[in-house]
Amino acid sequence: MPAYWDVSATTPVDPRVAETVLRLMTEEFGNAGSRTHEYGAAALSEVSTARRRVAECVGAAPEEVVFTSGATEADNLALLGLRAHGESTGRRHVVTTAIEHKAILEPAAHLAKAGFEVEFIPPQKNGIVDAPRLLAAVRDDTLLVSVMHANNETGAVQPIAEISRGLAQREAYLHVDAAQTFGKLDDELADSRIDLISLSAHKVFGPKGVGALVTRRRGWRRPPLEPLAYGGGQERGLRPGTLPVPLVAGFGLAAQLAHDEREQRRQSSETMRAAVLEALEPTEPQLNGDPERTLPHILNVSFPGADGEAVMLAWRDLVAVSNGSACTSASYQPSHVLTAMNLPESRVRGAVRLSWAHDAEPVDWAEAARRVNGLRGS
């Protein structure tokens, strides 16, 4: 198998996390909703610990964490869960960006069909949204501002702190999709003005199938969310169904490990980034996204004169990479993110995304560079 350098799509499960998940699947397999015996009590204790661990990473209270199946469900709950409040208050205006994940763009389109006005703010050429421009779009009837913390394709970190400050005296709710930054930029996520935060375990070396929506209170008021499904009343009535205790506990441990080890992981990722860029220099790579304001473990690069699909095929036995979001890459379409950045079509089609773990397997990048240059000569 080639080296795996596509952690923006999913990460391998940390062995420490896998051990916990397996134990809770095979030995301590109780239902956290069972109140009559020790199996249920033990399961509830695991869930409570996980809830606390996730909350502590972003400076939230444990009761503000609602477990979901992942960030996509959390995004849907954040946007569609506010629909009834928007309709009842007459606040039918939503501001988001043109580079969001499909888990935001599609629910936003659903709101638009329901009569909401949705504004999509484009990024600058460096992949970063201009905060003053976004804030200028906010009105008195704005229900929600939704901005991803860092883009999943380019790694560009958005000015969440500046947006948060600009909303200090506004009623609009602020939602942040932090799937790519949770466990990495937790200090920024601890901002109390961020009302809603979407998280996913499988981006922080946890199991697939679990995530969370942080629903931060303003004073004593919770965000006025309505559930998207009914039956059982779990997760404070917002997300019914039996909690997958092994996955929830695995998420909690993965969150704590990522938070505690984030500085070492960042330094390792930065070292790898420098080595990759040095080795690829003979290909004259074009970096898509501001290199000074991107996550250290994501590199979106185009190679002049080489198609991205051809590059990935040439590297197939060396390294597993992608050309965009895993949710849309099965049948290739030009990246809506790079297109929104107003990059030339040839550069968009030539783009390849490298994203690596802090302990990623080494790659012969000199050989990778030779193969790219070989494509140009063919």
Results as ranks from 00 to 15, higher is better:
3 A>P: 05
4 Y>S: 02
11 T>Y: 02
12 P>E: 07
12 P>T: 05
16 R>A: 14
16 R>S: 07
22 L>N: 08
23 R>E: 10
26 T>F: 07
27 E>C: 09
28 E>M: 05
30 G>E: 01
39 Y>W: 13
42 A>H: 03
52 R>A: 12
54 V>Y: 11
54 V>N: 11
58 V>M: 08
70 G>C: 06
73 E>M: 10
81 G>K: 12
91 R>D: 07
91 R>I: 00
106 E>D: 14
117 E>D: 13
120 F>P: 02
122 P>M: 15
122 P>N: 14
131 A>E: 13
138 V>G: 00
139 R>L: 04
142 T>M: 07
144 L>V: 04
144 L>T: 09
145 V>R: 09
146 S>W: 05
150 A>I: 00
154 T>S: 11
156 A>V: 04
158 Q>I: 04
164 S>K: 05
174 L>G: 03
182 F>K: 04
190 A>C: 14
190 A>G: 10
191 D>Y: 06
191 D>F: 07
193 R>I: 00
194 I>Q: 13
198 S>K: 00
198 S>Y: 02
203 K>D: 00
203 K>G: 02
213 L>A: 00
222 R>V: 00
232 G>F: 08
237 G>S: 04
243 L>V: 04
247 L>K: 15
252 G>T: 02
261 E>P: 05
262 R>E: 09
268 S>C: 09
274 A>N: 06
276 V>T: 08
281 E>F: 04
284 E>T: 04
293 R>I: 02
293 R>G: 01
296 P>F: 14
297 H>E: 12
299 L>Y: 07
305 G>T: 07
313 L>Y: 11
314 A>P: 12
318 L>W: 01
322 S>T: 09
323 N>F: 10
324 G>P: 00
329 S>P: 02
343 L>D: 00
352 V>Q: 04
360 A>I: 06
367 E>A: 15
369 A>Y: 10
